[in-house]
Amino acid sequence: MKKALICGVSGQDGAYLSKLLLSHGYEVYGGSRDAQMSSFKNLAELGIRSEITLVSVNINDFRSVLQTLLKIKPDEVYNLAGQSSVGLSFEQPVETLESISVGTLNLLEAIRFTNLPIKLYNAGSSESFGDTGQAPADENTPFRPRSPYAVAKAAAFWQVANYREAYQLYACTGILFNHESPLRPERFVTRKIVATACRISQGSSEKLILGNIEIARDWGWAPNYVEAMWLMLQQDKPDDFVIATGHTCKLKDFIRVVFDCLGLNWEDYVESDLTFYRPTDIAEGHANPEKAKRILGWEAQYKMEDVAKFMVEHQLSKLQKTSLIEQ
């Protein structure tokens, strides 16, 4: 039985990856800064919390990482930890840089120090590319990060590449474009849109206040994307891969699909507020995931319209359950 340690198990990707690895017969260890105090509500939502061995590990602390690796001796480590909001990174740049780049460096160095045959997956981000205009970004596209989050992810990417080349570690980065699900917190714009629209459909008189709705992104389905993470660590040689659908849509298109699912005209309920604009932002994000299809045999199963529909259906179901409990 293979053993996997997932750092950042409490997040969206950590929960879906845990479920996937369990289905492949893994013994799964879920790392969190304080495993005794964390709620792990995403694991509970998927009905797998009792199947995960939860461990306290602070990846910003080298000793904590080293002790954890020596104790568990995992075959695979998935680094999904760190501050994950682009918007929040403008308010907390130091915390963002430390939690992502220092955490990644500690994992790499601890693996090198133990000399255990551990394979490392690092969660990269399409934000590192910055604005590529209409050009689809692939694994050879230069990084021009435009947020503290993107700067941190770019630094972590090069740390992984350097340890792979200099120390022959099996370490790779998945450069993931936007991937959504009902497990996203509401500070993420797609979840905010879905949650607010569903409340409006149930009679709420509120408005949906957003920033720039003209931005365009490549949106995929998170449970599908964690399969790519796992596939990267099953290859003979470590490498980096862009993971995306290859289809880009404007945020207002996502909004329209969500409101259409609810039988509403989005323009009646949405307002734009300059206070929600970011200091610097990416106008459009385009991706070329051909390498992942060719080498990993992976391609996105769902596009933006499917993602919006899935999230609306889940949110309505959640509201109905809450209503029945209150009755």
Results as ranks from 00 to 15, higher is better:
110 A>P: 04
210 L>P: 04
261 C>L: 08
82 G>H: 06
215 I>W: 04
136 P>G: 01
200 I>A: 09
144 R>D: 07
107 L>Q: 08
107 L>G: 07
28 V>Q: 02
121 Y>H: 06
171 A>E: 07
31 G>A: 15
93 P>K: 07
118 I>D: 05
111 I>G: 04
135 A>I: 13
80 L>P: 02
237 K>T: 14
215 I>P: 01
231 L>Y: 12
188 F>E: 12
166 A>K: 14
104 T>M: 08
197 A>M: 11
123 A>C: 14
217 R>G: 01
11 G>M: 10
270 V>P: 06
244 A>K: 00
125 S>W: 09
195 A>D: 11
312 V>H: 06
156 A>P: 00
300 A>W: 00
200 I>S: 06
133 G>T: 04
46 L>A: 04
99 S>D: 03
138 D>A: 10
58 N>I: 13
51 E>I: 10
254 F>V: 00
169 L>H: 09
84 S>Y: 03
246 G>L: 05
59 I>M: 13
272 S>P: 07
213 I>F: 03
234 Q>G: 09
48 I>A: 06
53 T>G: 07
82 G>I: 06
314 H>P: 08
130 G>Y: 02
290 E>N: 14
33 R>Q: 08
76 E>N: 13
317 S>V: 09
274 L>D: 14
308 A>D: 03
19 K>V: 08
221 W>H: 07
49 R>F: 06
42 N>Q: 11
270 V>K: 09
209 I>T: 15
168 Q>D: 14
297 G>I: 14
224 N>P: 06
110 A>F: 11
45 E>C: 09
247 H>L: 00
85 S>N: 08
193 I>G: 01
46 L>V: 05
29 Y>H: 07
288 N>I: 00
162 N>G: 10
172 C>P: 09
283 A>E: 01
141 T>W: 01
1 M>E: 12
60 N>M: 15
168 Q>V: 08
312 V>M: 11
128 S>D: 03
206 E>M: 14
22 L>R: 12
288 N>M: 01
233 L>M: 15
133 G>P: 03
75 D>S: 05
125 S>K: 02
221 W>S: 07
307 V>P: 01
194 V>K: 05
83 Q>P: 06
166 A>Q: 09
195 A>M: 12
273 D>F: 14
77 V>F: 10
195 A>T: 15
135 A>R: 09
15 A>R: 03
3 K>D: 02
167 Y>G: 07
301 Q>K: 15
88 L>H: 07
27 E>D: 10
77 V>K: 06
52 I>C: 11
324 L>G: 06
154 A>D: 12
1 M>Q: 12
178 N>P: 00
207 K>D: 13
170 Y>C: 11
297 G>N: 14
159 Q>G: 03
241 F>S: 01
227 E>A: 12
224 N>R: 12
69 L>E: 05
193 I>R: 03
322 T>Q: 13
297 G>V: 14
222 A>D: 10
73 K>N: 04
289 P>R: 06
138 D>Y: 02
29 Y>T: 08
38 S>T: 13
303 K>P: 04
155 A>E: 13
232 M>I: 14
300 A>F: 01
149 Y>E: 00
286 H>T: 00
308 A>H: 00
6 I>M: 03
183 L>C: 05
15 A>N: 04
287 A>M: 00
312 V>C: 11
17 L>G: 04
41 K>Q: 13
109 E>C: 08
175 I>K: 01
132 T>V: 10
62 F>N: 05
10 S>L: 08
47 G>N: 07
64 S>V: 12
68 T>R: 13
108 L>F: 01
262 L>I: 13
